[in-house]
Design a protein around this nucleic acid. Structure first.
Lengths: 225, 225
DNA sequence: TCAAAAGTGTTGCAAATACACCCATGT
DNA sequence: ACATGGGTGTATTTGCAACACTTTTGA
């Protein structure tokens, strides 16, 4: 990172979003590689300015659509980072967001601004991270881990239909510990967060598994796991 | 509220803070009465602009010191409100904060800007509330209620020394339900959040009560209540 | 001696955990 | 027939909730 003079005179509101997904039994976050100073070649969260005629949430959606090719994605606001010197280009206040999507729905694409965009395991993010984005990622993962035990937030990481083993694997990846299969299934049945589709998998060299989907449409809170 | 033309050209970052305390067995929040349009005589949360050379948190502390005469107060960021039309004067993004203090430490004082500042019961806030401040208050109270059951956040609402009955009352006021005295005391002992000072109250026409203080200095999380 | 709040244990119930074997399919 | 993941029940432990009486002080 090089020292540069400040480019912006006024305080600017920006957003940065941690797009989190699960691939290969690992939590992953999307990072872009910056082309320009002051953080040339550093990795950063996708983000950008909030326009003067758009809400903060709309700005997040707009940037996600540009960089990850997805317009319907679960979003939640994390925290607003407002240290004076967090951005060497000037006074930029950034609102951090968490976005969750099953990996199949992401279409990461580089643009003129960025030489590259790809997923990194959250346990192995590159050391050259721009700004305070490492901290934002940490807040994002902490939030996900904390909400997973009292909400149905995992639904945003799952495909429409899934087996109970798939679901258990997602919980295990997020929380980093294993569950007993029988106890896990019992609990899922009790809280009736999911519904049996009466369809089954086929093709595996093993007994077919029942396919489930999440019940209802919204979010809810309850104690489980 | 009257219609006015926009006063500010650029997006501005402001803060609004819900200063919450307990008085008379009720949760209370400090509100100021505005002197000027577009919300003349409406009640609002204390708040104001974030200076270009101060962090967001410093701006919150500064405004609290001005309006509530207290410089050491527990603060936590709640949410950033970024709808385009939330302020008729222009594009103002506001970072909402929760501040907690025992009532004895607050010294609410009116200023030139505000004709009045006082505490309102959160169950009886006036109907003439400016901006989206009713929503901010709601987020503040929800956050407090939710954190009280898994953190030691009540410490910021208590005086330095207190009896177990005092402490139980605070939990009951915040959560709006009653606890069994024996179970409550048992739990407080188990989690060892508080320490016996070996001192006792005196003066009441009843048996003296042991005085306690919170252990350690920081925050922690654990399941209780 | 009375009023008022402080203080103190036990029991029953519900929820969480630990644990092992048979089933259906594809190769 | 065998390898692979799917599917199921019970016993034990632990944590939570319900419950009532005695103690100490000041008036």
């Amino acid at each position: 990172m090089k020292n540069t003079t400040k480019q912006f005179k006024h305080t600017i509101v920006a957003i940065d979003v941690a797009i989190v997904t699960i691939e290969g039994n690992e939590l992953q976050v999307a990072l872009i590689q910056l082309k320009n100073e002051p953080f040339k070649n550093y990795w950063a969260l996708p983000g950008g300015m909030v326009g003067s005629e758009e809400s903060i949430k709309d700005a997040v959606s707009r940037h996600i659509k540009m960089k990850a090719g997805i317009s319907k994605i679960h979003l939640e606001q994390l925290y607003t980072f407002g240290e004076v010197d967090r951005d060497p280009r000037g006074r930029i206040v950034s609102v951090g967001y968490l976005a969750l999507s099953p990996v199949e729905k992401l279409k990461l694409k580089a643009s003129e601004e960025y030489s590259n965009i790809k997923l990194f395991k959250v346990n192995a993010i590159p050391s050259k991270i721009a700004y305070d984005h490492k901290e934002i990622i940490k807040v994002a993962i902490t939030r996900l881990r904390s909400k997973v035990v009292y909400t149905n937030i995992v639904r945003y990481l799952m495909p429409d239909e899934f087996t109970l083993t798939d679901l258990q694997r997602i919980y295990e990846v997020i929380l980093g510990r294993e569950f007993d299969k029988r106890n896990f299934r019992k609990k899922m049945m009790v809280i009736k967060m999911i519904t049996d589709t009466k369809r089954k998998t086929s093709g595996g060299a093993h007994r077919p598994a029942s396919l489930y989907r999440f019940s209802g449409k919204g979010d809810y809170k309850i104690d489980f796991i």
